[in-house]
Amino acid sequence: MAEQLYWEDVQEGTEVTALAKNATTQQLVRWAGASGDFYQIHYYKDFALGNNLPGLIVHGALKSAWLGQLVGDWAGNEGIIKSYGCSYRGMDIPNDDLTCKGVVTKKHVDGNEHIVECDIWLENSKGEKTTPGTAVVVLPSKN
């Protein structure tokens, strides 16, 4: 695991360490089984095509879980995620090189909490931000 990140280590504009993902259709099935989302557009191609989709698509909630991993990995296990969320603006497809990214937009202290706010997003191999969102984390302080 990466070394623990501290509040003092980040500034507005600091990038969140990127996380690369590429979902095989098998991973979509594993996610379906782990979460319980068995909507067929994620594993049954004919069904997806019949719903006017280009083919199988990646679950929105899986993308959301990856963004949670992005923020959790970056904040480290001494950091705490207070909130995060994302919007599913564009569809993502299996076997595409996807990247979860983020950037610090604000840092402040609220009571005892050293807070960092970030924009986060998932982008596809063309660089399109299909899944933008935000996150608020509490990082440990060196002081």
Binding site: G60, A61, G68, I80, K82, S83, Y84, G85, Y88, G133
Partner: peptide
């Protein structure tokens, strides 16, 4: 599904 937001 338009989006998901969580608070912990």
């Amino acid at each position: 599904n338009g989006g998901n937001d969580y608070e912990f």
